[in-house]
Amino acid sequence: MSTDRLKAAFESGVPGCNWIVRFDEDGHAEAGSAADLDQIDNPGPGHVWLHLDCIDRRFIDVLRHLKTLTAEAREALAGDANHQFVEHADHTICGAIVDHQHAIDGPKEDTDFLRFACGPGFLITARRIPIYSAQATRRALADGVKANSPIALFELIVTNLCKCSASMMRDISVSLDRIEDNVVIEGRGRDQRAGLGHARRSAVRLARQVNGLQSTLERLEEASEAFDHKDFAEVATSLGQRADSLARDAANLQDRARMLHDEINAILTTETNDRLYTLTVITALILPATFVTGFFGMNTKNLIFAESESGTIYASFICLAASLGALLMLWRMGLAGTDAEGRAKPAPKARKRLG
Rank of each mutant, 00 (worst) to 15 (best):
M1L: 03
M1K: 08
T3N: 02
D4S: 04
K7D: 10
K7T: 06
A8W: 05
F10H: 07
G16I: 00
R22I: 01
G27T: 04
H28T: 14
D41W: 02
G44I: 01
L50C: 03
L52F: 05
C54I: 08
R58E: 14
I60E: 11
L69D: 12
A73T: 09
E75S: 08
E75L: 08
A76D: 01
L77D: 07
G79W: 03
D80I: 09
A81H: 10
I93C: 05
I97R: 10
V98H: 01
D99K: 01
H100E: 02
H102T: 09
A103V: 13
I104L: 11
D105I: 10
D112E: 05
F113I: 09
L114F: 08
C118P: 01
R127A: 06
I131S: 00
R138K: 04
D143A: 15
G144Y: 13
A147H: 01
A147W: 00
A147E: 06
P150I: 09
L153E: 08
L153A: 14
L153T: 03
L153K: 04
I157K: 00
I157R: 05
L161K: 12
L161F: 10
K163H: 09
K163I: 11
C164A: 05
S167W: 10
M168G: 00
R178D: 14
I179V: 15
V183A: 13
I185R: 02
G189S: 04
A194C: 11
G195S: 15
H198C: 11
H198G: 03
R201Q: 14
R205D: 14
R208A: 06
N211R: 15
G212L: 07
L213A: 15
E222A: 11
D228L: 12
K230I: 15
A233M: 14
S238V: 08
Q241C: 15
R248T: 02
A250E: 13
A251N: 09
E263C: 02
I264D: 09
A266N: 12
I267Q: 08
E271F: 06
T272L: 12
T272Q: 12
L279Q: 01
T283Y: 07
A289W: 04
A289D: 11
A289I: 07
V292T: 08
G294R: 00
G294C: 12
G294S: 03
F295L: 15
T300M: 13
N302V: 05
I304T: 14
A306W: 04
S308M: 07
E309M: 00
G311Q: 07
G311S: 02
I318N: 05
C319A: 08
C319L: 10
L320V: 02
A322S: 08
S323I: 02
L324S: 05
L324T: 05
L324V: 07
L330M: 08
G334M: 02
G337Y: 00
G342Y: 11
R343H: 14
A344C: 02
P346L: 06
